[in-house]
Design a protein around this nucleic acid. Structure first.
Lengths: 346, 346
DNA sequence: TTGAAAGCGCTAACAT
DNA sequence: ATGTTAGCGCTTTCAA
């Protein structure tokens, strides 16, 4: 063990140990050309001996730019966000950035203080994995200071990278229509960002109308605890009384809730009800869940988001917000099938 | 919008705008007493006007300590770690720290570069949510420099906060024994840290021996892709041929795999096989999964881990590594029941 | 090929 | 009650 407890060696310690000036040490660290092999070796030796690690704070202070990326995420407990967070972290470190996460839990205060803190850390940019709870506040804190990229959610004051929500919704709805379903409901989970929900709903409506079917949009009640479960069961029971045989949920989370309700109500999936989700979280692939869903290309979303913010940071990209839309894919699993009993349109 | 694009106001800008010296501004920011109300108001006005946010880098450089906590996590895609990460982030920010995550994906290189980077950022401490892949390397990078706390995993060179693995395993095993199972297997998922696995296995063995039953330990094959699934099905089929009726998995992930295998093999749970997990991830509570399991107190684990590292950082806690063990709880769900056909011991 | 020196934005003595 | 000043550890001209 060479490190002294609690104290980090500085560039001056290395310089002294190697018998050179600190500029020379700096030159060695940064790999600039024009340092003699001999000196370089001596410096490197001192570095290893002292276990020296350059102080990024000092470097970034003088360089006037950091390699810290702020990542605002609503709920890391939600598998979709957790998976996105992981890909973002990976993409960020691949490009030499470090990710600082703010899990807001939908709380405005947590969000505001998180963002302010990110600004105090002089984060090079901010990635939003979910729509900020207080949009105007978020905007006033971030906008004009550092670039912002919205992943899988939208805003007009930053670049947007998202899946093709409308095309995905069309795929999902058409799948149900093709299977022979006539009464197909759209379930909107309020956790889904407005813009995404809007586009998914739009895709759904379009296919329904093309097929000459009546769209029905349905919003989950959001209430805490047991009451919620009961309320939802009632909602779903209601819907099913309307002889709905197909359901397209705006996300996998909602789709899985739907499966749960169906189980409790004794409604068989897919015999009595076909369910399609959106996202393709890992859970959807479990045999016990086996959910037909629309796959979002998470790694690609993350890669492109970081690529864009990197370009903004470096000044390689300028001008108005970019909007990138990635293709989605329908993953057919066991939660969908042709309706058992024939239903009539309208 | 008051902020100039790309440039952050400095303490000098504020001082100039308020017509005071930068020390006075600093005093206002830090809330030190002895600033006249009038001056304070003028400074605050200038701060608001300029949208000034103190530069944490500069502050931490001069103060020689940061409020950044490094968090090393194996796989954020794994719900248990994602949930822990969320609680850690919450606990950290409640105590004025920011969390910097390193998702290592079990990769040694990613881990080493992540840890080195954390040291360069002068992280105040490092929290390990999973055992480092290269223990010695991790130790040599962190130990002696900043405090390390191991959450839900173990090491002898840092504080350890973990659930009572042995007691949990005992609860789980006793539950199966009490239900009347005689042939009960332990399934070790290699993703579980060695120490935790050891303790859980120990608890299992103890109860089995107390009950006069023969312990059987079972390791998942770890292979990629389709081969894996087939291999596992074979393994499980083998086990069941041995008339095993009860299974205790070292984590929920493994338990859910077990459920999946059982489904594929046409083995009914809990009629033909009872399954108990460990962790109580959100997924375990899904009606479709409905897994009996041992609940780890995640929020408390996170709280205490951050509390300890905070105490170490502040110097309030000194001396040899602490070891905190938290109580667990058995959550009975639908994956366990009395064995359908009576089995004989041994 | 190396070194000296200025300064990034801030805090924290110490003066006034 | 407020201002002056000396760094924190580094990068980056500019000289030597």
């Amino acid at each position: 063990m060479t490190a002294s407890l609690g104290r980090h060696a500085t560039i001056l310690d290395v310089a002294a140990a190697a018998g050179v000036s600190k500029s020379t040490v700096s030159n060695v660290i940064r790999g600039v050309v024009g340092v003699s092999a001999d000196t370089r070796a001596r410096v490197q030796e001192a570095i290893d001996l002292l276990g020296y690690r350059p102080n990024v704070l000092a470097r970034q202070l003088v360089q006037q730019r950091t390699t810290t990326l702020g990542v605002v995420v609503g709920d890391l407990g939600n598998p979709f966000y957790a998976e996105m967070a992981k890909h973002i972290e990976r993409a960020a470190s691949a490009r030499g950035y470090r990710a600082m996460f703010c899990n807001t839990q939908g709380d405005e205060e947590a969000e505001v203080s998180g963002l302010e803190s990110l600004m105090e850390y002089r984060a090079a940019g901010v990635l939003f994995l979910s729509q900020p709870a207080d949009r105007e506040r978020a905007r006033s804190i971030v906008s004009g200071r550092v670039p912002a990229v919205f992943v899988s959610c939208a805003a007009d004051w930053g670049d947007v990278v998202s899946a093709d929500d409308m095309a995905g919704a069309e795929l999902a709805t058409r799948h149900l229509v093709d299977l022979g379903h006539r009464r197909i409901a759209y379930f909107a989970d309020p956790i889904v960002e407005d813009a995404a929900d809007h586009d998914r709903q739009h895709g759904y409506r379009r296919v329904m109308e093309q097929a000459g079917l009546q769209p029905t949009v349905f919003h989950w009640h959001r209430q805490p605890g047991e009451l919620l479960r009961q309320k939802r069961d009632e909602q779903v029971a209601d819907i099913l009384r309307g002889r709905v045989t197909g359901a397209f949920s705006s996300n996998d989370y909602g789709a899985i809730e739907l499966l749960e309700c169906a189980d409790r109500l004794g409604v068989r999936v897919p015999d009595d009800l076909s369910v399609v989700g959106f996202d393709d979280v890992v859970m959807a692939g479990l045999a016990r869940v086996n959910l037909t869903t629309v796959r979002q290309p998470q790694p690609e979303l993350a890669d492109i988001a970081v690529e864009i913010i990197d370009a903004r940071v470096l000044g390689d990209l300028e001008g108005p917000p970019q909007r990138r839309t990635l293709d989605v894919e329908l993953v057919k699993r066991g939660s969908t099938a042709a309706p058992r009993r024939q239903t009539t349109a309208d």
